[in-house]
Design a protein around this nucleic acid. Structure first.
Length: 575
RNA sequence: GCGUUCGUAGCUCAACGGAUAGAGCGUCGGCCUCCGAAGCCGAAGGUUGGGGGUUCGAGUCCCCCCGAGCGUACCA
């Protein structure tokens, strides 16, 4: 990518200048102190490198250093200027011609790096209890997690998407008890949840169990045994969750059951392992894990006084199992309400002899629903909106985009009304509109015109074959007219630079496990395309110019589509 | 109390330790006989919660306050 290219050029020039003894002392200089950025003012250039950081090595002033480096630069097809300590580069037309060629050749693989060290990554997210429907917070993890998986895979990594089913423990008893009441109600018997608030907390009183109760009866089951009911309910809930995930374009490779983990004996094996390593001790009838030896605030109970394992115990065993399955990296997306667990799980990983840095936990802040301009805090039962209700209301595209568009460590305000509007207030529609507009231009270019009043037909300005050939047999010189028209050149350059930026965007996003950056990018790309469109008439009798601009439209269409695919949003040809 | 994530324009958010802190929405003002005006262009709008410090340079790093969310179980 161009960023790397200019950095290489400058670093080479620095080495040359040093060997010619033109850069002062430079005694402790090491490569890697410089970076490429975007000039604050576009008139300065397209890329900038600030060499001020070299001042302390060279003992020269930044402008002197910059000028000395420029004197040693051999970069072609490029305007270079120095302002203060900044070396600015303005890219020439050949770079752009090659860029469009690259997009046409690579298509959906544009920006995929060629030689990376492939990592085996386990990405765990959502991991909900099978005791109720997903709430909107789960939607955030689902959207972000699947987008991150798409991104890491695109980059060339091997990614397993895993859902840990929390189907063990006291909550499951609650589920069985609750279903029993619903079934009895369906059978016309008098049964209801306790009215006492404290008592009621031992039940799931939500109406979502009613259809499951109906189905249980319709399936011809008789048993009122709470364990059997619990088992039935959790299977049904899980199926509902799986169906919703599919509709939401979230594709898990593995659903890992906590119950299976227990039944397989892996939990006990793990406890024994910790025991053998001397990481456990007994106190007040419980077994404790010395997690404080590994950075945790305090030790944690592994086995309660009643002999039962804690939730943490299973989680430790689960992460050990992940490690034993041979992954290079474990990435978890957890809600911020679980952040206290990070230190303990990492402590367990270290205690078991693995590198705790193999586990990266992305802590996500929660989601607030905004209805009529008012924040409705998640978790307040009466106002809880389920994910399927939200999707039904605003659609998959808008939900996925909104859930992905903010940095994971800021609480997300999900404004339902805004997400529903088809206007400029809604970034999803703004981006999709740009895509549809590009498609429309391409359609019009190959469609004959009929004058409604006279009935006269005007043939299409370009044949479908010729349009196809633009990208399939791309000739660099097709782009030339773009650079010959002063008044539209700026918007076209801006658009092409944004297309080029996709490469550094992908790398940056992968390195930092970010997804919102893609949402931002695709909005910016849409903006640059709209601007280009406004000043540049694409379909025109000037055949050379039309082909040049059509090539840009085609390239833009490709990149918008690629970016939207990563975040799981559709790119509609018409709206 | 302790831990943790935050505090940036009226609102929602950006900004690898680097140039005059940027976008979108909202507000105000322009642009359609022509490819989708669901669009474009422009303007106003800021002491980056406050105070110290480190640095050639701090919204960013460190310390102290103030404010908010989330944790702080032998629950899951």
């Amino acid at each position: 990518m161009l960023k790397d290219f200019f950095l290489d050029e400058v670093e080479t020039a620095i080495e040359n200048a040093i060997s010619n003894n033109k850069l002062g002392e430079m005694t402790n200089y090491e490569k890697g102190t410089l970076s490429v950025e975007k000039p604050k003012n576009a008139e300065f250039g397209d890329f900038a490198i600030n060499v001020s950081a070299l001042a302390r090595f060279a003992k020269f002033s930044p402008p002197q250093i910059a000028n000395e480096i420029v004197a040693n630069l051999t970069t072609k097809d490029c305007e270079i200027n120095v302002i203060g300590g900044f070396i600015n580069f303005k890219v020439g037309s050949e770079f752009f011609k090659s860029l469009i060629a690259e997009i046409f050749t690579e298509k959906e693989n544009f920006a995929k790096p060629k030689n990376i060290k492939k990592e085996k990554i386990l990405l765990e997210y959502v991991s909900a209890n099978p005791t109720g429907p997903f709430h909107i917070g789960h939607g955030r993890w689902a959207a972000m997690g699947s987008a991150l998986a798409n991104l890491l895979k695109f980059y060339g990594h091997e990614v397993t998407q895993e859902f840990y089913i929390n189907d063990a423990g006291a909550q499951i008893n609650k589920l069985g008890k609750s279903l029993k009441i619903r079934i009895q109600q369906e059978l016309g018997k008098t049964a209801d949840f306790p009215t006492d608030e404290v008592e009621r907390k031992n039940y799931y009183a939500g109406e979502y169990l009613i259809p499951i109760a109906k189905k249980y009866i319709a399936d011809g089951y008789q048993s009122q045994d709470e364990d059997i009911l619990a088992d039935y309910a959790k299977k049904e809930m899980l199926n509902l969750q799986k169906a919703l995930l599919k509709d939401f374009r979230v594709d898990f490779d593995v659903f890992y059951s906590e119950t299976d983990l227990h039944n397989s004996g892996k939990v006990e094996t793990c406890v024994k392992k910790l025991q053998d390593l001397g990481k456990l001790y007994e106190q007040e009838g419980a077994i404790w894990f010395k997690s404080s030896e590994y950075g945790d605030d305090q030790d944690r109970v592994i086995k309660k006084a009643d002999g039962a394992n804690t939730y943490l115990t299973a989680d430790i065993a689960y992460h050990l199992d992940k490690l034993e399955r041979g992954y290079d990296r474990l990435i978890n997306i957890w809600g911020a309400d679980h952040h206290g667990y990070v230190a303990r799980v990492k402590a367990s990983i270290e205690a078991l002899g693995y590198n705790p840095n193999k586990l990266e936990v992305l802590l996500g802040q929660l989601v607030n629903l905004v209805i009529s301009g008012e924040q409705v805090r998640m978790g307040k039962r009466k106002n809880m909106v389920t994910l399927d209700e939200l999707i039904e209301e605003v659609g998959v595209d808008a939900t996925r985009f909104w859930m992905s568009m903010r940095n994971i460590d800021t609480t997300l305000d999900f404004d339902i009304e805004l997400a529903k509007t088809s206007s400029d207030e809604n970034p999803v529609f703004y981006v999709q509109y740009a895509y549809a507009r590009a498609c429309s231009i391409l359609r019009n270019a190959v469609t004959e015109k009929i004058d409604i009043e006279t009935g006269n037909k005007t043939p299409a300005l370009i044949s479908e074959e010729d349009l196809l050939a633009l990208s399939q047999n791309y000739d660099k010189n097709i782009l030339a007219p773009i650079f010959e028209e002063e008044e539209t050149l700026n918007s076209a350059r801006k658009l092409m630079l944004k297309l080029e930026e996709y490469k550094s965007l992908i790398r940056f996003s992968v390195q930092n496990c970010l997804v919102y950056t893609i949402c931002r990018y695709v909005q910016e790309l849409a903006t640059d395309f709209h601007s280009f469109y406004t000043v540049s008439r694409v379909i025109t009798s000037d055949m050379a110019m039309m082909k040049a601009r059509l090539a840009l439209v085609l390239a833009t269409k490709t990149v918008i589509q690629n970016a939207l695919t990563l975040i799981g949003v559709t790119a509609p040809e018409k709206m």
